[in-house]
Simulated assay, not measured.
Amino acid sequence: MHIYDTITVALADLDSRGYNLDFNLTPEALECKEIDLLLMPEEFEIDEVYRFEGMTDPADSSVVYAISSSVGNMKGVLVDGYGVYAENVSPELLDKLKIHHE
């Protein structure tokens, strides 16, 4: 596990290590618009998690997930705010993210 001072530094290092796709949350899966792909919770693993606290506002905090999938042998990142996803995603996806978030 690495230690990063900023999200920008974390994303640059993860990119240099092959995590070069950008994932977004959908209600049921992770989506990569670059390659028109949806990954269901059972189709990806969370390899690393990094938390970043806001400088002045604790509510301005983010989590960076380094994600890999054997589907297409790909790696990428998901950047999310603390708790933002809780009401918008399936229980299966939420469980997978929470295991690594807490």
Rank of each mutant, 00 (worst) to 15 (best):
M1A: 10
H2L: 08
H2V: 10
Y4K: 05
T6Q: 04
T6M: 01
I7K: 15
T8F: 06
V9Q: 15
V9P: 00
L11H: 04
L11R: 15
L11F: 12
A12E: 15
D13Y: 06
D15V: 00
S16Y: 02
R17T: 04
Y19H: 01
L21C: 02
D22N: 12
D22I: 09
F23P: 08
L25T: 08
L25H: 04
T26K: 12
P27W: 04
L30S: 08
E31A: 14
E31D: 12
E31C: 13
C32L: 10
C32T: 10
E34Y: 05
L37R: 14
L37E: 05
L39C: 13
L39N: 15
L39M: 14
P41C: 06
P41W: 08
E42F: 12
F44T: 11
E45Y: 05
D47C: 01
V49A: 11
Y50R: 12
Y50A: 09
R51Q: 14
F52V: 00
E53T: 08
E53I: 06
E53W: 13
G54K: 10
G54I: 07
G54Y: 11
T56E: 12
T56W: 07
P58R: 11
P58Y: 04
A59F: 13
D60I: 04
D60T: 03
S61V: 10
V63S: 08
V63Q: 11
V64E: 12
V64G: 08
Y65A: 13
Y65S: 07
A66K: 02
I67E: 07
S69I: 03
S70D: 10
S70V: 05
V71F: 11
V71N: 10
G72M: 14
G76C: 03
G76D: 04
V77A: 02
V77L: 01
L78M: 01
V79H: 03
V79Q: 12
V79D: 01
V79K: 14
D80W: 08
G83C: 07
G83Y: 11
V84G: 00
Y85W: 15
Y85V: 09
A86V: 15
E87K: 13
E87L: 13
N88H: 15
N88R: 15
V89H: 05
V89M: 09
S90W: 08
S90K: 11
P91K: 12
P91V: 09
E92A: 14
E92V: 00
E92C: 00
L93I: 06
L93Y: 05
K96S: 05
K96D: 02
K96E: 01
L97G: 08
H100P: 01
H100W: 03
H101V: 01
E102G: 12
E102I: 13
